[in-house]
Design a protein around this nucleic acid. Sequence first.
DNA 1: TGTTTCCATGAAAATGATTATCAATCTTGG
DNA 2: CCAAGATTGATAATCATTTTCATGGAAACA
Lengths: 143, 143
Amino acid sequence: MGKIRETFRRYLSDKGLKSTQQREIILDEFLRAGSHLSTEELYLRIRRQHPNIGYATVYRTLKLFSECGIAEEHNFGDGQTRYESVAGEEHHDHLICTGCKRIIEFEDPRIESLQDEVARLHDFKILDHRLELYGLCSECRQK
Amino acid sequence: MGKIRETFRRYLSDKGLKSTQQREIILDEFLRAGSHLSTEELYLRIRRQHPNIGYATVYRTLKLFSECGIAEEHNFGDGQTRYESVAGEEHHDHLICTGCKRIIEFEDPRIESLQDEVARLHDFKILDHRLELYGLCSECRQK
DNA sequence: TGTTTCCATGAAAATGATTATCAATCTTGG
DNA sequence: CCAAGATTGATAATCATTTTCATGGAAACA
Ligand SMILES: [Mn+2]
Ligand SMILES: [Mn+2]
Ligand SMILES: [Zn+2]
Ligand SMILES: [Zn+2]
């Protein structure tokens, strides 16, 4: 069984929550589908095979994923919360093309350590951060 | 007359829009009040002296400020859009204390130039960016 | 100054994403 | 298998923001 699925089940049992078919189905599709999907996008995908699963359940379950650490929430400014799986991958930030909505991931440890330096300077303890670069990818610039 | 007010009036006339009492009043209070205010917070302040100005007008006017470049929109994750005046000050980013909601501004040209480097690497043209560090200020950590 | 033309305004309704409610239905420990 | 309690799906409710629309106001112009 995948490590992610195991993490999720342990989280449920530790919290006295229950492992249900819906939660398994939603997790399956969440892991199968591409990243940075909105709740609605995931719901629409799931509905193709499981038209009886409710919208609210998808919302609730994605929130669970985020609580137990297997998913991360994002707000890229389009008014919808997006989720991506964090399969033990290293942290990364995002370039967002406002033309084609493409999302490019990047990581730069130098930026991360400068962030730490800034925090130290202000006697601040960082718990989370977001760095998003908005603009146009090369394809969109050629139009 | 302040440079900001002038910029705003020129923007209005260039666009064939009209200079109204409400817009002047809202701009005055926007410049007088502290930064990073939400629409509701600004509306409540304005209402003390001008109870006849409508909520929708404050929304519309703040959007105008942002369009003409005298204000900047922010989303610090509390579900409300916040605005701050950009009185020709240099760009800065934000440390946000999730305990007391305090907002600390900082700038680090080294981070900015690393962002440019990342963009170059991905053949991406940055039009905007957001860097927000969430965590706890020193005071909030001592509780 | 009066007229005309649009734009702006305020109140209220509409929207869109997300959350809460609730009766019916599963999970799970014993 | 059973009881206790969590989950689900449908739907109503929220909350911030936007739209609508009738009325009022700015501004170019006569
Ligand atoms: Mn990502
Ligand atoms: Mn600021
Ligand atoms: Zn693009
Ligand atoms: Zn604090």
